[in-house]
Every structure is written in C-alpha cells, then in structure tokens.
C-alpha cells in the first residue's frame, strides 16, 4: 500500500481532475440544487456516500466481468449495480436513520441518475485502481463534488442580490459563473504529489 499514491489520487480527484469543474460530470445536480447552501451541502455529502459505496461494490463486479471476458458489459452492469445500491441505501436509511433520510430528502434518488457516480466507477476500471484505491477515489471524488457545489452555492446566494442585464438573469448568469469557476480550476492542472 502506497500512501503517496493514495494522496496523489485524492489530490487529483478533489482539485486537478475535479469531477464537475474539470471533467464536467454530474452537472445536473450541480446546477439544480445549488441555489441554497444547506441543500448543496446535503447533496454533496449524499454524493460522497454513494460514490464511495458504488466504488466498493463495483470493484468485485468488475473482477467478475474480467474473468468472463465481458468488459464491454461494464456500463450496463455498473448502472444496474448503482441503481440497485441507491434503492437499497434509501430503504435502509428510511428504516434505521430517519433523520439522515429526511436531511438527504430527494437528493438520494436523484443520485441514481447522476453521471458522476457512473463516471467514478468507469474511471476506476480505466485507471486500473485496486480495491482501496477505488474506494479512496470514489470518496475524494465526492469530496471534490462537495467543494465545487459549496463554492458555487455561495456565489449563487450572492448573485441573488446582483443586478445583471435582464437577458442574463437567473440561469444564464449561473451558467457563466460555472464556466468561470471551471476556468479557474484549470489552474490546478499539472499539480502533482511526488
């Protein structure tokens, strides 16, 4: 086990290859639930939770697919796993942790169709990560999502008080802001842990 590699994976997932602002995965919840800070934070933690769990669960499934020479089935199999996983987690939380379930609310089922979650498991395979590396990549990828959505939500809360030209009001100015944030995150490219 190489700590440096794990650190490098984490740094990459949070900053250099941020899922939203650099890889442009999971844009819909990023735009959809970033109007208020508290919902954005809730969504962020839900994504961390599901991404970590999905990475862990998809690893053995991928091993099975490799054994049977069925790599081309990865996408379909992973979608199946993630959808089932989210459903299961939702039921489990509803029964055992109703407060957490209420806090996550509608965001948990929303994650089923979040491409960032499918992206993280496919990237795990692409990069050839082992089990621990996959889980770390999943969790830190979710942390990157949290970072991006919290930054964006704080900007959007301030945008409420600004007066852009009429044509830019609401969604257009939010999209431009997201684009500028993505530009600024390009500054992290090339950052490495030796």
């Amino acid at each position: 086990m190489d700590i440096t590699k794990l650190l490098s994976i984490s740094l990459g997932a949070i900053l250099v290859n941020n899922f939203i602002l650099v890889q442009f995965l999971g844009i819909c919840p990023f735009m959809g639930v970033s109007k208020k800070m508290d919902t954005a934070v809730g969504m962020g933690f839900a994504v961390i939770f599901v991404m970590g769990l999905a990475s862990a669960l998809c690893y053995p499934v991928n091993v099975l697919l490799m054994k049977l020479d069925l790599e081309y089935m990865q996408t379909v199999a992973f979608i199946l796993v993630i959808a089932a996983l989210v459903q299961f987690v939702e039921m489990f939380l509803k029964k055992s942790m109703p407060t957490l379930y209420e806090a996550l609310g509608v965001y948990l089922p929303l994650i089923t169709t979040n491409c960032a979650v499918l992206g993280v498991v496919l990237l795990n395979v692409q990069e050839g990560y082992n089990f621990i590396e996959s889980v770390v990549y999943g969790i830190t990828g979710g942390a990157g999502f949290l970072l991006a959505i919290v930054l964006f939500a704080s900007i959007r809360e301030r945008l409420q008080f600004s007066e852009p030209p009429k044509a830019f009001r609401g969604f257009p100015i939010a999209l431009i802001t997201a684009g500028l944030m993505a530009l600024s995150f390009m500054g992290f490219s090339g950052l490495q842990v030796w």
């Binding site: 499934v61 099975l64 697919l65 049977l68 020479d69 069925l70 089935m73 379909v76 199999a77 199946l80 796993v81 089932a84 459903q87 299961f88 039921m91 489990f92 509803k94 029964k95 055992s96 109703p98």
Partner: peptide, 29 residues
C-alpha cells in the same frame, strides 16, 4: 460469449431484485 453476458446480467438483475424485494419487507416503514 453472448450466453455468458445474458446469464451474468440476468443473474445480477435477479439477485439485486431479490435483495431489494427482501429489503423492502425487512426495512418496511
């Protein structure tokens, strides 16, 4: 190969379906 693919996804789907069906009973609120 196609048989394996069919079988694998069928079994995966079946297992997940079963687990969810049981879970919905166990975790019923």
């Amino acid at each position: 190969n196609i048989l394996y693919a069919l079988l694998l996804l069928g079994i995966l789907g079946g297992v997940f379906g079963l687990v969810l069906a049981i879970a919905s009973k166990v975790f019923e609120v």
